[in-house]
Structure formats: C-alpha cells, structure tokens
C-alpha cells in the first residue's frame, strides 16, 4: 500500500510543515509531494495499475480517471482516507482514534 500526501497549495504545504504534520506523515511511511495535480487525473506520481484501489480525497471519479481502466477510485474525506491508510481498508476514523 502507498500513501501519497499532496498539499493543495504552497500555503497549506508550509502550514503542514510548520505544524509538524509532514514529519508525522513521513515517519508513518507516506510520500509527500509538492502541490500538483499528481495522480488525480491519471498523469503521474502513484497512478493506479490494473486492479488497484485508491481512497482519494480528490473530487472526480470516472472510469480510468486515476490510471488503469480496471482500477477503482473511492472518494472520501481526509479523515476517512487517513484512517484507511492505517488499516488498509476503507475505515471510519473512529476505528483508529484512541
């Protein structure tokens, strides 16, 4: 499983850095990118292979949107995406918050 963090803007990127969020993500094994379209439109950076599934916090979900035509996209809130990254399946934040 791969977890890719893409701040939406330079400002959010800097805020996340100052708050220490990026360090938490990197220590957890995530990849952090500069703000970019990334894999959202299936262009680059972690696009989906055949049969792969993504829990994405983007806003579009069409056949082949994030890569292979036989991959699947599930749109979710950041909290659900974060929880799912921990458990490896689509999960409620309540499952991982102590």
């Amino acid at each position: 499983m791969r977890t890719i963090i893409i701040p939406a803007t330079q400002r959010i990127y800097l805020e996340a850095m100052r708050e220490g969020l990026l360090e938490i993500f990197v220590e957890a094994g995530a990849v952090v990118s500069t703000p970019t379209c990334g894999p959202c439109l299936g262009g680059h950076m972690g696009i989906l292979a055949k049969g792969e599934r993504a829990v994405a916090t983007t806003n579009r979900n069409f056949v082949g949107r994030m890569g292979h035509v036989d991959s699947e996209v599930y749109l979710a809130s950041p909290a659900v995406a974060a929880a799912s990254a921990i458990t490896g399946k689509i999960s409620s934040p309540e499952e991982v918050v102590r």
């Binding site: 439109l41 262009g43 069409f62 082949g64």
Partner: peptide, 26 residues
C-alpha cells in the same frame, strides 16, 4: 465523461490525430 472521451494519460499532446487515435477507448 471527458475521461472516457479522451483519457488524461494522453493529454501530453494536443495533436488532433494522436488524440483521435485514443478517442473513447476506455
């Protein structure tokens, strides 16, 4: 949707012939 009309993985060109070769393919 526009993603099946021309998948994003082919948007690195704006050559009409090249785009037509992948039109609707998904």
């Amino acid at each position: 949707d526009t993603d099946v009309i021309i998948p994003a993985r082919y948007l690195n060109t704006s050559d009409p012939k090249e785009l037509a070769a992948h039109c609707m393919e998904d």
